[in-house]
Write a protein that binds this DNA or RNA. Structure first.
Lengths: 255, 255
DNA sequence: CGCCTTCTTGAAGGATCTCAAGAAGGGTGG
DNA sequence: CCACCCTTCTTGAGATCCTTCAAGAAGGCG
């Protein structure tokens, strides 16, 4: 467990402190978490469906999908995780029946033992609360995905997803045009939006034709942010990015 | 705050202790939570969309829906809550951007102040953990709903929802036939499954015709549980009901 | 250079929606 | 206790969005 993992844990810590207030000592507890780095090739399921797990996975690089599937084997991606996300933090508290994880592109992950996370959470209640809060932001996203897949048409779904990713990557809202690397296939976009890859293809063509966004295999160029937001019926609030310092919470101090 | 609320809080406590281990003292902390009982008529939104809330709502009686909506005002129900559920427990840790709640039938709820829940969680880390875990079971359901709406056809969606509710109400799996009260309109079923009420109507007729289930305005009669489970591609694991005593968790004891 | 994955395109079919209107059900007031 | 009203359910027909199937083109990696 070399020190070289600290920058990656720092990224996760930044995520936590963007919404929660943690003391220096609590922050150190995160940075000192033991972990094992691992490279995963694209399309590999590195956390299998339905098994008990004893560690959580921090995404260091690449895009990771959480997914479920129906009996015919059709996949539905239920969450997309970007670097800095602890993709299955929920497993700390619910180690069985956890969801499966798949590398959507080539990825690097850090496996963090539950035991260490639990020990840290037990020792520092405010840390437990910060982790809990992080899980709830994840759940907010999940809620939005239900709305997305349940009550929006193809164009809206794809636009909404692109907006969400842009905001989570902190590349938006910039003025007008936005570029970011996003290494996923059209088939994976289809599995995330509940469509077929054929229809995602046509939908992306329409978004391009209408001057909203150009999506290629490796990157996204948003040509008109406001228009894409409108097309995706997107409202950034649920993502809880940009919480001002005075809005960050800490309720767990024992009295 | 009369003592008469204790039975209702006990129900919530039972929910917690079915998956988590709590000491006598911790259990008392739940039972002593202050709360205000309230009757809500059907179809009323009793927690509005997008506002900051300072209390969580425990469902005592009736069915409560959590929902989001798109810009056209089309609703998507993202969760259905039954008596004993704390419908927006997540708001304790994420008081802004909470989801809206609507009474699907006439309902009775208990409003529990965040302050009291926070104080209890701060004082008893194991309690915080139990609440966190409860939120994660809720998130598992949410995940399944994404799969349901994204990758299953109308018949499967409706069957899956009926199975889920039956298991959560602890009326299944009984042998073969099952009856339970379920006071929800076809329009609400449509909003939960991402369909139209017209199509839900035809789907229910098909389920009835095929001898799987009869759904009326007030109740559900499942004629063939196994067949409904197959039709809904339903796997009970994610609900984490029936966790055996030795499987219940308690990791938060400070060392 | 060659292979394998991914993207692209067309055409046809099907699941679900929309619109519309009548029937049934449940609650309420006279 | 009946009549009435409003919500919910039911049914039909036509429209549409999306899927399925298929096959060729393009792209990336060893």
């Amino acid at each position: 467990m070399p020190f070289s993992n600290k920058p990656d844990l720092q990224r996760f810590l930044d995520r936590l402190t963007s919404r929660s207030v943690l003391t220096e000592e609590e922050q150190q507890a995160i940075l000192n978490l033991p972990c094992r780095s691992e490279h995963v090739r694209a399309n590999r399921d590195f956390v299998p469906l339905g098994e008990r797990v004893d560690h959580a996975c921090l995404v260091v690089d690449g895009i990771v999908g959480r997914f479920g599937q129906n009996s015919e084997g059709k996949r539905q991606i239920t969450a997309m995780h970007i670097p800095g996300d602890m993709a299955d933090l929920h497993s700390v508290v619910q180690p069985t029946g956890a969801s499966a994880l798949q590398a959507l592109s080539i990825a690097t992950i850090l496996r963090v033992p539950h035991a260490a996370l639990r020990a840290a959470a037990a020792r520092y209640p405010a840390l437990a609360e910060a982790l809990w809060r992080d899980c709830m932001v994840d759940a907010s996203v999940l809620s939005q995905w239900v709305v997305n897949v349940g009550r929006r048409d193809a164009r809206e779904r794809v636009a909404h997803l692109l907006c969400e990713i842009a905001v989570r990557l902190h590349v938006a809202p910039a003025e007008g045009e936005i570029d970011f690397s996003f290494d996923v296939t059209q088939t994976q976009l289809a599995d995330a939006t509940g469509l077929t890859s054929v229809h995602v293809n046509r939908t992306l063509q329409a978004l391009r034709r209408d001057g909203l966004a150009q999506v290629t295999r490796r990157a996204v160029h948003i040509a008109d942010w406001d228009a894409l937001v409108a097309a995706g019926d997107f409202d950034t609030g649920y993502l809880q990015t940009d919480v001002r310092p005075e809005g960050r919470l800490r309720i767990a101090d024992a009295s």
